[in-house]
Design a protein around this nucleic acid. Sequence first.
DNA 1: TTCATTTGTAACCATTATAGTTACAAATGA
DNA 2: TCATTTGTAACTATAATGGTTACAAATGAA
Lengths: 154, 154
Amino acid sequence: MNSNQQFSVSCHILAVLTAYGDAPVTSETIALSVDTNPVVIRRIMSHLRQHGLVESRSGSNGGWRLTRPASALSLREVYQAVSHESVLAMHQHPNPDCLIGGHIQEALGGVFNQAQTAMELALEKFSVADVLAETLRANLLDRDKRLDMSDLQN
Amino acid sequence: MNSNQQFSVSCHILAVLTAYGDAPVTSETIALSVDTNPVVIRRIMSHLRQHGLVESRSGSNGGWRLTRPASALSLREVYQAVSHESVLAMHQHPNPDCLIGGHIQEALGGVFNQAQTAMELALEKFSVADVLAETLRANLLDRDKRLDMSDLQN
DNA sequence: TTCATTTGTAACCATTATAGTTACAAATGA
DNA sequence: TCATTTGTAACTATAATGGTTACAAATGAA
């Protein structure tokens, strides 16, 4: 398993908030859907809030809400809110006295940046609303499939 | 620091092999340039060899060589030889009984695949020969800069 | 044949990142 | 006043990674 599932969980969280519309959703509720601890949710929310994607309220009837329509919230923004590293990691301290070791990082830096940008541009094509819509569509397809299965048993 | 520097180190290794042309290069020599242990190099080489990018010979005058011209070796192939995970990790076991948790993975899967492909296509635009050329270019620029510095001191 | 060199790989350790958990102060509204 | 909920610190367990030691097998030179 690759590390850092925070982006994936963030998309899940935001899809849930979208589904709830204006009603505030608690960390507890979200944690049940994601199947994790509420603190894990709050930890991620902390990043999303710092980037202005969500807002929170304490106390009863408290919880989380989107600050914008989900259709205006791109996955690139979500990614940038919770990602602190590039997808391609540079190796550290190559030998500076070597003709290659001394300057390989500059050469790779340009390549890595282009790869990173290409990936983020792909994410930018999708919104949180798209994710929810696709999830619900998969739901319907699965429901149909299950109906077919029960048909077979009749 | 982000994990997995193997792709970065692989590019470094292959640039070194390119610079040495047909002469076999030992893990020891490469390790000195990368500044790591020779076993770390061999570990990575093992992947590159399994994908047919390099070949090895034991014993004296042994070492590593490219199996192809560096200009015909794209960074995408290098990436695929040493990467075992997607850049975006899916979160595990969301609640299957939840309308969203039950199908979010299918929705995100498509998005993640597009992002992964976009990144790899960006890598495909570069060859190992490009990396070496850019490294040497950075070398020359740096040499010029240092010459300027010493000019100032005259 | 013998020996130095080098790969190939297993095994182990230290470090780090992450997810999960407990705990509790602060905020909020009923 | 109290139950609810966020916000955050602190701790633990787990897993991945890089580094290291060790050694068998291959290879070519002396």
